[in-house]
């Protein structure tokens, strides 16, 4: 199967692209502008990253974010015409629009992060950070976090299965669930302690030192073509910034 288009870019270029997209999403606070950007990001996720399935799974969460933002922001915005009032809750038209823009912005950022992770392995992420001269310790910590999270989940899942196999029922009540989940904590905690010790020894024996820069492997240095896409997007971001400074794309000009 052919690799997603964005996978062909150097990890450092992908990371730059992500940073620029995130910056772009914060440029405007008019929902129409932010919606257009979020739609562009969604298009990229589906067609350039082939992560449509993951995106579909995130759709309910995205909708919840937008709704929450539309409801939560208005009480903090005084400007505009009051369109709803319930007891102490009060919403203006600009407040609702701003809430909608912020919700769409968060969704756009989530999707952009999803797009990045869909085409970038933790090791590539680490290499991208190294390209920007971040210390090797930071990049290894990052990849270890990615490695250990699934291990923790797996250990938790096994512990859960082991207790379920012995008849443990978690029930529907949150408090009862929390109390009954206690047995899971012990094996997971003990395993984590043992693993951390083992992992540190393994790292040492395999030559890792926080100050030692590893030999590059698996990724060629970025070419000028790798930088062409982020460069184009930076140009777009600059234009967007100019647009915003000239008074476009904002329902509340004084706010981010």
């Amino acid at each position: 199967m052919k690799e997603p288009l964005l996978k062909n870019l150097h990890p450092a270029a992908r990371l730059t692209l992500l940073a620029v997209v995130l910056a772009l999403l914060t440029t405007f606070n008019h929902p129409a502008y932010v919606a257009a950007l979020a739609a562009a990001v969604t298009f990229a996720v589906v067609f350039f990253c082939r992560a449509g399935r993951a995106l579909r799974r995130m759709a309910p969460l995205a909708a919840a974010f937008v709704l929450l933002s539309v409801v939560m922001w208005p009480p903090f915005i005084d400007a505009g015409r009051v369109v709803a009032r319930f007891s102490i809750y009060r919403a203006t038209d600009l407040g609702v629009l701003y809430g909608l823009a912020v919700g769409l912005r968060i969704v756009g950022m989530l999707f952009a992060g999803l797009a990045f992770l869909a085409v970038t392995t933790p090791e590539e992420f680490g290499r991208a950070l190294q390209s920007f001269r971040l210390p090797p310790g930071a990049t290894v910590t990052l990849t270890l976090a990615f490695r250990l999270l699934p291990v923790m989940f797996e250990t938790s899942a096994r512990a859960l299965e082991a207790q379920r196999a012995r008849g443990l029922e978690f029930g529907s009540n949150f408090l009862s669930q929390a109390r009954r989940a206690l047995p899971l904590v012990v094996p997971v905690f003990l395993y984590s302690l043992r693993s951390a010790d083992q992992l540190a020894t393994s790292l040492e024996l395999r030559g890792y030192r926080a100050t030692r820069r590893p030999t590059p492997y698996g990724t060629e240095p970025p070419t000028r073509w790798d930088w062409a896409v982020p460069a184009a997007l930076i140009a777009c971001a600059a234009a967007a910034l100019g647009l915003r400074l000239s008074g476009h794309g904002a329902v509340l000009p004084g706010r981010l």
């Binding site: 392995t121 090791e123 990849t143 990615f146 020894t201 790292l203 890792y208 698996g218």
Partner: peptide, 11 residues
């Protein structure tokens, strides 16, 4: 298992 440090086989 606890001594593996990377996320892909090759790495």
């Amino acid at each position: 298992d606890a001594a593996l440090v990377a996320t892909t086989v090759e790495d």
